[in-house]
């Protein structure tokens, strides 16, 4: 680890001011410590934001649910209101990391987890995301875990977080405060950016921004929602493919609203508008689920090691629709 200085900060304004001076934040530390250990992150200063009053879950009068940025993943998973209203979110958290990591990791930090691409985390290899212009080792290398959707010739790294995939299916937004005090809301769907020719820029955050929290709007209540995650082992692993499905059905069993997002396969948490469209207005059955899920891999570009993700993605989406619709 390179030397750095450390100090806690007391409030969001103080944190943002330190960031403008070049400090990096540390919250749960579960990704930051890995990046420090591996020499990928070399901050001059770490500002510990754990004293900011951003922990906990509250419910607005209109039924929206707010989750503070410093809420630990396990505390969010254990929140009865969240589980009741938006099971897709708590299911995604149940399947995230290990109990130890969930006790430490924060929801804000989870949105900013860096890719698990082997080369990004190995400083001895070229990687455009870590060192812009150095090349992408994954294109013709060990790319079994890399993306089939949203990649560019510069980077095909997967954004590996489960939580934002689930959050997209319930129309959640991120609350951000800038150093100048201005606050803004960004839909989770628009929070991450495609790699294009600047894979080092991963989100819409600017230097001096602090994530304050998340909000899931009341209008997303009442959808049947569900998260399915497929991985190399039964537990404690990042997704090879995952799907978050939220559906509203009328009395006749017809789909009146559909939100579907997938993880493990794309360079950002990935929404599937075409699959949603295929479901709208139809009376859900297993055949419909299968036919709609075929569109999940629309536009997929596969490489030497990750072609298996195309059928895996389609079947993961199919299974998630079937289970969300209770057709199993």
């Amino acid at each position: 680890m390179q030397p750095f200085t450390y100090a806690p900060v007391a409030d969001a304004a103080g944190a943002a001011a330190r960031a403008l001076q070049g400090a990096s934040f540390i919250a749960g530390g579960t990704d930051m410590l890995q990046l420090l250990q591996e020499g990928v992150a070399q901050p001059a200063e770490l500002a510990d934001i754990n004293r900011l009053p951003l922990q906990g879950i509250t419910e607005d009068a209109d039924g929206a649910i707010r989750i503070g940025a410093l809420t630990r993943l396990q505390d969010a998973a254990d929140d009865a209101r969240l589980r009741e209203a938006f099971p897709v979110v708590t299911e995604a958290l149940d399947l995230t990391a290990s109990p130890m990591v969930r006790h430490m990791a924060t929801v804000g930090g989870n949105l900013l987890q860096r890719t698990r691409c082997l080369y990004f985390r190995d400083v001895s290899t070229p990687c455009n995301k870590r060192l812009p212009g150095s090349g992408c080792s994954a294109l013709d290398g060990e790319n079994r875990h890399n993306a089939i959707l949203g990649g560019s010739e510069h980077c095909i790294a997967v954004q590996p977080s489960d939580l934002p995939v689930a959050l997209i299916s319930v129309d959640a937004e991120v609350q951000i405060q800038h150093a100048d005090g201005a606050e803004r809301w960004v839909p989770v769907e628009d929070f991450h950016r495609l790699p294009g020719d600047t894979p080092q820029i991963e989100t819409v955050l600017r230097q001096g921004d602090v994530i304050l929290g998340l909000r899931i709007p009341a209008h997303a209540r009442g959808r049947r929602s569900h998260y399915v995650k497929v991985r190399d082992r039964a537990s404690f692993s990042w997704a090879l493919a995952s799907a978050a499905v939220a559906l509203r059905l009328d009395e006749g069993g017809r789909v009146t609203e559909a939100r579907i997002a997938v993880g493990g396969v794309a360079t950002k948490p990935w929404r599937l508008p075409r699959v949603e469209q295929e479901l709208l207005g139809v009376r859900l059955d297993r055949d419909r689920a299968r036919l709609a899920a075929v569109w999940a891999a629309e536009g997929a570009v596969t490489r030497s090691g990750n072609a298996f993700k195309q059928p895996l993605l389609q079947r993961t989406v199919e299974r998630a629709i079937i289970e969300a619709g209770e057709l199993a």
Binding site: L33, Q34, Q74, M104
Partner: peptide
Amino acid sequence: LGQCGACTVLLDGKRVVSCLML
């Protein structure tokens, strides 16, 4: 790197991996 659990301790009564914490 948080991946094996050998360093597990309790922090305020809850399990954490002590290698991923300053």
